[in-house]
Structure formats: structure tokens, C-alpha cells
Design a protein around this nucleic acid. Sequence first.
DNA 1: CATTTGATGTTCT
DNA 2: GAACATCAAATGC
Length: 219
Amino acid sequence: MTTRDAAPTARRSRLGTPLPTTFYDRATELVARELLGAVLECSTPDGVTRGRIVETEAYLGPDDPACHAAAGLTARTQHLFGPPGRAYVYLIYGMYWCFNAVTRERGHGAAVLVRGVHPIDGVELMRRRRPNARRERDLTNGPGKLCLAMGIVGAMSGASLRNGPVVIRAAEPVPDVDVEVTPRIGITQAAEWPLRYLVRDDPFVSATPKAFFRRSYER
DNA sequence: CATTTGATGTTCT
DNA sequence: GAACATCAAATGC
């Protein structure tokens, strides 16, 4: 047994495997929390778009059955396995890109999925890229939608988030009272783990299923 | 408004 | 062959 496997305490979920709670697994949750309020920026030949991150999900690594790292290192997941501070962009359902920020050391395989951004700059460009968006919030209120709106594509996977085509900048923090936590969306494995973070009442977050228990980050 | 269904094709078993 | 970290249109109230 390695040090990592020796969880001091386990927050036990109602069903299934307990949520890993080692110091290092918790680090990815903290990044997911801290990314709320940060600015995501993407530069392409068409222009620059910026948005405030309002919804994230933590994917913890090989011990998280919903994380791509659970299947081991493959061609698709090479950038998920580090180093941290880079993009992991993958194709879902053969059609849509999803953007992640890698959080853990090389070889581990943990990341934070960005699921919603509130547009700041380049809104007209976003509209041109999202002709199907009828309401304003449909521009960027989902992981596939925000990649379409901002021009994030698989070729950007592996790039630095400090000086690559996609940049994340710290900005005005979101206070705990405005942070909500729910289970992750659209997964079947470890579906009850509370690893989705969102800004309360922001119109650019995806819909929370009615069945989800919803609580404030601040107890 | 909410819920269901079809599109679409890569990845992994 | 099945699963998939989704989206948009269609259908039901």
C-alpha cells in the first residue's frame, strides 16, 4: 500500500465507492473551487474571446472511475497525464470538444473540466460560432458549447495555460456563499460524488437535474 | 416550462 | 459491439 492509498478519513457516499480524500486528491477539488471566477481566454486567427469561469468539475485521477485516467495511458489521454498547468482537450460523442485544466504531476492523470463560462469579450465572435444559440446563455452554458464559442479545439491539447492559445488568469474570487456543489453531470460511474462547482444564480451554468442534492460550499 | 430522442464517430473492450 | 465528462430539435404539459 502506498502513502497515497492510506486515506486518513473517508467521506463516504451513500452508494458505491467512497470518494478519495487524500491530501493530493483534495488538491484537484480545491483547484475546481478556485477556478470559479478566473478568466478563460482563447486566441485564434479569428480573434480573442474571454469568459469568467462559472462551472467546473473535478476528475481526480486513476482512483476516480469517471476519470479518463482510470482506463490508463492511451493516445487520447496523453496530455491528461501531465504535467500540470496545461490543457487537456478531448472529443466527446464524436462531435464536441471538452476543455480541461490538468492539475496533477506527470503520470497521475487528474484535471478540472470547465463546464460553463460567462462571456466577457468577443461576444460577437461567439455568436458567429454558435448560430444555433437562441438565448444568450446558450452561447457558453455547457462544456461543448463553450469550446465551440471560444474556438477551443483538440490541437490545443497539451499547450501551456500560461502562455499558450488558451490562458487562465486569476481574477475576482467568488465568495464561498456564492458557490454551490452538486454531483457531476452526464456520468454513470461514481455519479454521486459531489465534485461539480458552480456560481449561484449565474445564467451561464448548465441546468442542475432536479434530483441532485444542492448545497452551499459554505456550511 | 420539462423531458425524451436522434445525431454522430472516436475510443476502448 | 458498447460506451461515451454532449447538443439540439421534437414532444409533452
